[in-house]
Design a protein around this nucleic acid. Structure first.
Lengths: 220, 220
DNA sequence: GTCTGTGAACGAATTCACAGCT
DNA sequence: AGCTGTGAATTCGTTCACAGAC
């Protein structure tokens, strides 16, 4: 597994800085593209060309995961990809519960990018009786009352909140009660969860505001 | 990864660090909520309670915009809100061109959050003849050939790319040619634009990957 | 007394530069 | 020769702590 013989260093799982986490995704993306092109070896300088990220930065980021490169040669594309995926918890597919069958929920359901990275929406829930029973792609929209019971079988660990702001906290509580460990929240509100549950917020309006700021600054 | 375009202009306006930009949106969000509740004055400590951001951090962030607070009193909610909006280029509404009338495009079209912050989708385009002529909300989907011509009247400065990966660069070129100055890109690919055009990428799959990483680390 | 604005201290992240391996 | 991995240097961002305004 490890190409490096020598003193047995029980790989100390070094903490990865927050900004590195996002870049690891970028590297993964880059490696997948290289793999599609049949390229088997890549140097940090080449990855720098592809991603726009400084080569030393790439080497340091990768070194948080382990000593995965060969001096004078570079990195093995497949091996690096597997190691990154492993470390990011992408070793096996993730089942995902989606709450909210509105337009955003529908969009997420039909977004092909998720399945490519191993995230599969395996059930959809909505509190509106008008939506329950309808289909979203191949999935039938279920009522919120069913959520906990269904997840006893499905055992999904990730939930997505795609409901209006005021409903978000209630949905979060529901997901946590059903055994969810991580939440991707699209509602523009800070949701409170107990220790041990990971929440990540995606605020689309905020992205527009940031874009506006940088446009305003660029206008000199 | 660096997004802050910084040709140094010696001006009274201090450069705002990248992480501050995102927080300014958060403050705006908080201020809007306070205003709704009829609260007219707020201290950095109170905003810290609401947002979870350190009070000293808030004061420093706000001080990049100007000396907007009153010692011993706090900040005037309305005034601070207006100053932040002004500085972020949110002083007046923004017209937005949306390209891509698929599920993501539809979701963006019907997302109420944008209009609340002053972003209005004023035209929708798609290259697929099957989509052209259909309606998305109150807007008719137009063909890509119409884009440049339409924007001579509309004069939108912001474009949104909600098309598949392989089409994204072409759409970006099209938007830039039509006079767009800023692009919000939902396609998972790095797009190249000429100097002076601001691009911001939103990669939903990457958000899942980051969530997965933090869940995996929390499990350790 | 309360609260802001900010220099100073601190800590984190990036980049440099080079030893050492291939 | 080419390239990684990493300590050192540097840049950047956050937090502290307090002078001064109210």
């Amino acid at each position: 597994m490890r190409a490096n013989p020598g003193p047995r260093l029980t790989s100390p799982i070094r903490r990865v800085p927050d900004p590195t986490v996002g870049r690891l995704s970028t590297y993964l993306h880059c490696l997948r593209a290289l793999e599609r092109d049949g390229i088997t070896t890549v140097s940090s300088a080449e990855m720098a060309d592809h991603t726009g990220i400084n080569a030393a930065q790439i080497r340091k980021d990768v070194s948080y995961i382990g000593e995965l490169g060969r001096p004078g040669v570079g990195y093995d594309v497949g091996h690096l990809k597997r190691c990154l995926m492993e470390r990011m918890g992408l070793g096996q597919p993730h089942g995902v519960l989606l709450v909210g069958a509105g337009s955003l929920g529908s969009a997420l359901c039909s977004y092909p990018g998720f399945a490519e990275q191993g995230f599969f929406i395996i059930a959809v829930f909505d509190s509106s009786p008008a939506k329950v029973g309808r289909r979203l792609g191949s999935l039938e929209v279920l009522s919120m009352e069913e959520l906990a019971r269904r997840n006893r079988d499905l055992r999904a660990r990730i939930g997505v909140i795609a409901v209006p702001r005021d409903a978000a906290q209630g949905v979060a509580d529901c997901l946590v009660a059903a055994g969810i460990r991580g939440i991707l929240n699209f509602a523009p509100v800070k949701i409170e969860v107990r220790e041990g549950i990971t929440v990540r917020n995606v605020d689309l309006a905020q992205e527009f505001e940031a874009l506006s700021y940088y446009m305003a600054s660029a206008t000199d």
